[in-house]
């Protein structure tokens, strides 16, 4: 599509892929990371949170059931992946503030402290935040960053905003000390539009569009730059205006196989219009794989998403 702007992915360090549950966030985060890696960048794909329930949703996009908190190769082109774990970040933070020796050993081995960490004020989010920061700052011996581009599959809307608002909250609660220092280091990335972009994933339906517009406001309130909207699963629309009119009248009288698809097309058109009138952000339309929930076509989805995202990058 010629009027579609380019997704500026390669010049930024961090890409937060956000959106409410069920909009295809994980698939698009994986496809985005894949597309960036194909452009020659050293890319890290992460998912915020432990692989609960025994499997890793992003790992699965690359045929891996499990991923650990340590980056490991996910596929060709140097793409790597890991999970962002609160406990890992807490441990890293403790090591950074407590001198090596008996004190740090006591701290890391203490059951009491571990219990404290699972139960107390914002230590969970702090751990997540710090682990992400460590991944961003990791360098090769020659000073090049280990990962030039980090793509994060963020949790559902509420938790995403809890995480992006964490620095301001903690800076308010703890004006000085090592935590605010880490928060400011994180803010230097997260609140700089040249370094961090949030991509809002949504669907061409009315409620998801409303929620996407709310999420954009929420991100701006936490000073994270929303760079664009990925409008996912846009249904194929073969009809012209006359045909639409004729079918509307006919299907009202007599529902047929295909009625649901036809109605969805109408809803998608209305939702996209509403989205365009509600925001000036660039919108990247992603066409739906026809018959996407059929077991036959399931395998075709990932390659199609990758190709579509790759076309937005170049």
């Amino acid at each position: 599509m010629s009027d579609t702007p380019r997704m500026d992915v390669l010049s930024r360090r961090i890409h937060l892929v956000t959106g409410k549950g069920g909009v295809g966030r994980t698939s698009l985060a994986a496809a985005l990371a894949w597309a960036a890696a194909r452009e020659g960048k050293r890319v890290l794909l992460t998912q915020i949170g432990d692989a609960e329930g025994g499997y890793s949703a992003i790992g699965r996009k690359f045929g891996r059931d499990q991923l650990t908190p340590d980056p490991e190769p996910l596929g060709p082109d140097g793409l790597r992946g890991c999970h962002v774990w609160a406990t890992r970040g807490q441990e890293q933070f403790a090591r950074s503030v407590i001198p090596a020796g008996p004190l740090i050993r006591a701290a890391l081995n203490s059951k009491v402290l571990r219990k404290f960490a699972t139960a107390v004020p914002s230590l969970h989010e702090l751990g997540v935040f710090y682990h992400l920061l460590t991944l961003l700052e990791a360098q090769h011996e020659d000073g090049r960053p280990e990962h030039e581009v980090v793509v994060a599959d963020m949790p559902a809307t509420g938790q995403t905003l809890a995480l992006t608002s964490l620095p301001d909250i903690l800076l308010d609660a703890l004006p000085d000390g090592p935590i605010p220092k880490a928060m400011r280091r994180g803010q230097a990335y997260l609140n700089d539009p040249a370094k961090t972009a949030a991509w809002v994933v949504t669907l061409p339906e009315l409620l998801p569009v409303t929620e996407a517009l709310e999420l954009i406001d929420g991100l701006r309130a936490t000073r994270v730059h929303p760079a664009g909207i990925l409008l996912n699963r846009i249904p194929e629309d073969p009809f012209d205006a006359d045909e639409r009119r004729a079918l509307s009248a006919l299907l009202l009288e007599q529902p047929l196989h295909g009625s649901a698809a036809f109605h969805r097309i109408g809803v998608a058109r209305a939702a996209e219009e509403r989205l365009r009138s509600g925001t000036d952000l660039p919108i990247f339309p992603i066409t739906e794989v026809p018959d996407a929930d059929s077991p036959r076509t399931e395998a075709a989805i990932e390659p199609m998403l990758r190709d579509q995202l790759a076309s937005f990058l170049s």
């Binding site: 012209d240 045909e243 047929l256 295909g258 698809a261 059929s294």
Partner: peptide, 17 residues
Amino acid sequence: AVRSAIAKLSRLAVAER
């Protein structure tokens, strides 16, 4: 318009069924 619309709908209908 009805005729062409029905023809196009048929393609969507197979998947929907």
